[in-house]
């Protein structure tokens, strides 16, 4: 049975995958067959058969672990003793962890604002132009690839070589600086600017998301409004300011809050580009470091809970706005 758990060759792995899928299909078929047979069967039994698997899975996969994590956040490093609020007071007083919180705040403020602004401007500029489709695909593309891939792309842009005769820069950004007559920089290890260079990567990814939603919102502005405004003599910037922005306001809020939620949980970029070194760590990355590098389970649990608590207000606001957008539609 060991090969079922740890297949080694590629062929074995695929066989195990097929077995898993068949096993799953068999279980589901059995459940459906059981509730389909009896002629008279109560609604509750059918409901349990249909919704039961999902409810069981989220209970053991999300609810129960979340409760354990909250409990662990009040315990020490290895979970052997209660420490009350020590982990929380440490998270908000230890200088290194304060830096982590400060970085997270910078991320959550800058990424949504800048990527939404860029996405909006771009959506307006390419709206109803000849190359609109291609132009949008180019900016949306980063959304498709993994954040690990995006991080490697940008790490290469930031690549640094010392400025010596005979040594050519291989990172594009440093080459541009050299062309302009400057000194090459170590973008990823120079504090505090390195955090901003990591943020650029997230903006590069999220602008496509903002652009797509806002572009749809712009296209949904009723023709009469635009026509009336034009007849009133509005054009260019004033059209943008007085018609476009107010019309897409609800969509703007949804985009801002959605990106903020994603940014709060950002982990891949920081981990791949700096590993959280050089003062660039954020809460989601510090969680991983504390749990798996420092073996401090209590503090890691606390950071996870902090993440959870920070997401809640954004989510509540987001849901409210989303409802408004849907009503307008």
């Amino acid at each position: 049975m060991d090969w079922l758990l740890r297949p080694e060759a590629a062929g074995e792995k695929i066989v195990v995958m097929v077995i898993a899928i068949l096993l799953f299909a068999a279980v589901m078929a059995l459940i459906l067959f059981a509730v389909d047979r009896p002629k008279r069967i109560s609604g509750t039994v059918v409901a349990v058969a249909f919704a039961g698997p999902a409810i069981i899975l989220v209970t053991i996969g999300l609810i129960y672990p979340a409760i354990l994590t909250i409990i662990n956040s009040f315990k020490n490093k290895n979970g052997s003793a209660w420490v009350g609020l020590d982990n929380y007071s440490q998270a908000f007083s230890n200088p290194e962890l304060l830096l982590v919180l400060r970085n997270t705040a910078i991320w959550v403020i800058l990424v949504p604002l800048l990527s939404t602004a860029l996405g909006l401007i771009y959506a307006v500029l390419v709206d109803r132009t000849r190359g609109e489709k291609v132009a949008k695909a180019l900016v949306f593309l980063p959304m498709a690839i993994s954040m690990v891939g995006a991080s490697i792309i940008w790490k290469f842009v930031y690549e640094f070589k010392p400025n010596q005769p005979g040594v050519k820069q291989t990172g594009l950004l440093n080459q541009v600086i050299v062309w302009l007559g400057g000194e090459p920089q170590q973008f990823l290890s120079t504090q505090p600017w390195n955090t901003f260079f990591l943020i650029v990567v997230m903006i590069w990814i999220q602008t496509g998301f903002a652009m797509t939603i806002l572009s749809a919102a712009i296209k949904a502005i009723p023709d009469d409004i635009i026509e009336a405004a034009r007849l009133d003599g509005l054009k260019g910037m004033s059209m943008f300011r007085y018609i476009t922005i107010p019309s897409v306001r609800p969509a703007l809020v949804v985009v801002l809050t959605t990106i903020a939620m994603g940014t709060l949980k950002v982990f891949d970029i920081v981990r791949t580009m700096t590993g959280g070194q050089f003062g660039t760590s954020v809460v989601a990355n510090e969680f991983y470091t504390q749990q798996f590098r420092q073996a401090n389970q209590g503090l890691a649990a606390t950071l996870a809970v902090i993440l959870f608590v920070l997401v809640i207000p954004i989510v509540v606001y987001n849901i409210g706005q989303m409802k408004k957008v849907e009503e307008i539609r």
Partner: peptide
């Protein structure tokens, strides 16, 4: 039904970090 559905809806936003270690 309604209670369970709303609960399910709310679970969408639980950060994975809170579930990883116990799992």
């Amino acid at each position: 039904r309604n209670f369970l559905f709303v609960a399910m809806f709310a679970l969408q936003v639980v950060p994975l970090q809170v579930a990883l270690v116990p799992l």
